[in-house]
């Protein structure tokens, strides 16, 4: 459940940054500038965070597994969107959930 809580906070942070990027344009983190923020992307990240949170609250791993699946799929999609449009979203950082998802699927 600790993992679920850590991912909840991580995706909440990504949601907040995505909203900032959608509202105010470029958001720079060190050398990394995100300019493709959108409110709907933030909604997806928020949904992922909420799914992890529910998993932590009800103590069920299934929520973390599905949230990680969504996060991984969204991350792949955002990387492809970056390659296609050169516009980047915080959704790309969802790849951090991929190892957890792969571990669960193997199990």
């Amino acid at each position: 459940m600790v993992v679920a809580l850590i991912f909840t906070l991580y995706f909440l942070l990504l949601t907040a940054l995505e909203i900032l990027s959608a509202l105010y344009g470029d958001v720079t983190l060190g050398w990394w500038t995100v300019d493709g923020g959108s409110v709907i992307n933030a909604f997806v990240l928020g949904t992922i965070a909420a799914t992890y949170l529910k998993g932590a609250v009800v103590k069920r791993e299934s929520y973390s597994t599905v949230a990680s699946l969504l996060a991984t799929a969204f991350s792949v999609l955002m990387i492809l969107a970056y390659l296609a449009s050169q516009s980047i979203s915080f959704g790309v950082f969802g790849f951090a959930a991929a190892p957890y998802f792969l571990k669960k699927v193997k199990k």
Binding site: N41, F43, V44, K54, R60, S62, L70, M78, L80
Partner: peptide, 28 residues
């Protein structure tokens, strides 16, 4: 349990629909 969750089912459905549109429009 998750996809048909009474609170999260619809937001997840909408998120998947959004991914479908990004895939159809931006990536193509």
């Amino acid at each position: 349990e998750v996809f048909m969750d009474k609170h999260l089912g619809i937001p997840i459905f909408l998120s998947i629909m959004w991914m479908m549109f990004v895939f159809t429009y931006t990536i193509a």
